[in-house]
Amino acid sequence: MAPVNLYPDLASRVPTTLLVVDDDEMNRCILGNIFASHYSIQEAANGKEGLEMILAGPEKLCAVLLDVMMPEMDGIQVLRHLKEADVLRRLPVFLITAEASGSVMKEAYELGVVDVISKPVIPYVVLRRVQSVIELYQARRRLSHVVEIQQSELLEKAQKIVDLNMGMIEALSAAIEFRNGESGEHVHRIHDITEFLLTNTPLGDGLTPDEIGQISLAAIMHDVGKIAIPDAILNKPGKLTPEEFEIMKTHTVQGAQLLEKFPQLRENGAYRYACDIARHHHERWDGRGYPDGLKGDEISIWAQVVSLADVYDALSCKRVYKDAFPRQQVLDMIREGQCGVFNPRLLECFFAVEERLHRLYEPK
């Protein structure tokens, strides 16, 4: 059975044009005839013309046969320009010369010429020497293209896995919101508010865009622990009793514990943020939050941001136990600490951009 070519388009990506640069028309004709049955031949009558043709598209050439002694620009000068342009690493250049001193040959090799061929040329010898090098360079190009294709395929597969993981995370978080009588938009708004605050205010100083993306994804999972809360409490239309509220508070610890049980999630950069946010998004600046009673900067900035985003969204939207509050009342309640005390710096940044955040709640 014939071998299957997994990358059939690679052959078309390997150049087959050979450039002959020589001021002697007879020499160009002789060299062209030697290679005409194997490659497409282009000619340049001097070094300057040859250099311009090479630099115009080195990837279109499979090799260059370059004379040393030419008007306008000699072969060594051409090599110097090609070296400076970093062309010789990818394009094999052969020096063709009738007489060359040791110093000229030494400089030519140091510049990157692959071989020096003496005139008069012996057709079958020069053909074999040039073909061998061209085949080597072509094989290297094919291998390079294969590696590029494989890397691209691996990156595409990795991105599909990332997208799948994110989809599963979003689906789980949204399912919990549905169970809580919500549309699932809450988690998306928490993601967007978190990302906006960390990107557009000093709250995100020191965080890279990738880290902000991971934190915003982690914010989606802040209430994942509610999956362990009984429906009678989760969907109670009235005020919770003290006993019921104690059960409701456990969703923070339950959420962190649940996330720790997903080994696949540990490989995601959002994992460490997700566990912290799930457990601590109800902590408060004055230490009167839960479950650990953290105070001040003991609470991570990402948990603080998600905490405020959660309160802002909860007050701004209708819930099973209340109607949505008017915007100004929402802002007054947050400013006055009616939903717990927040970091003053956090509030300053929040109020500076709240007008833009409020657009999330405008009818579309």
Rank of each mutant, 00 (worst) to 15 (best):
G167I: 08
P237C: 02
E283G: 09
Y312W: 10
H251E: 09
A324T: 06
R356Q: 14
E336F: 09
E156L: 11
I134Q: 12
H186T: 13
V320S: 12
P263R: 06
L172R: 01
K83L: 07
Q77H: 13
Q42C: 08
M69V: 15
S183V: 02
L55H: 05
I76L: 15
R90V: 09
P344A: 03
N268G: 06
A228L: 01
K239T: 13
V113E: 05
G167K: 03
M69K: 12
V224Q: 02
K318H: 10
S173K: 02
I34C: 14
G50V: 10
A36G: 01
L127N: 10
K226N: 09
V341Y: 04
T252I: 00
G167M: 04
Q328C: 00
A270D: 14
Q257I: 07
K60Y: 08
R335L: 05
N343T: 04
P363V: 05
L111H: 05
V64K: 05
L360N: 02
K249Q: 09
M1V: 12
W285M: 03
K249P: 03
T199E: 06
V93G: 08
Q138N: 12
A63D: 10
I41R: 05
G293S: 09
K261I: 04
G296L: 01
Y7C: 03
E336Y: 08
G102C: 00
E25D: 08
V4N: 13
Y273I: 07
V68P: 01
A278I: 00
A175Y: 06
M168R: 11
N5K: 13
L259F: 03
L18S: 13
L18I: 12
S40R: 07
A171S: 14
V114I: 13
D205V: 14
V68Y: 08
Q214I: 00
I169N: 02
A85G: 12
D86C: 11
H186D: 12
L155T: 13
Q131Y: 06
S132A: 14
V306L: 02
A218W: 01
E177P: 11
K106W: 02
A218M: 00
G57M: 10
T250C: 06
G102L: 03
V253Y: 01
N180F: 10
L164E: 11
C339L: 12
Q150R: 10
K249Y: 02
A218Q: 01
R284L: 06
K60G: 10
Y124C: 04
A218P: 12
A174I: 13
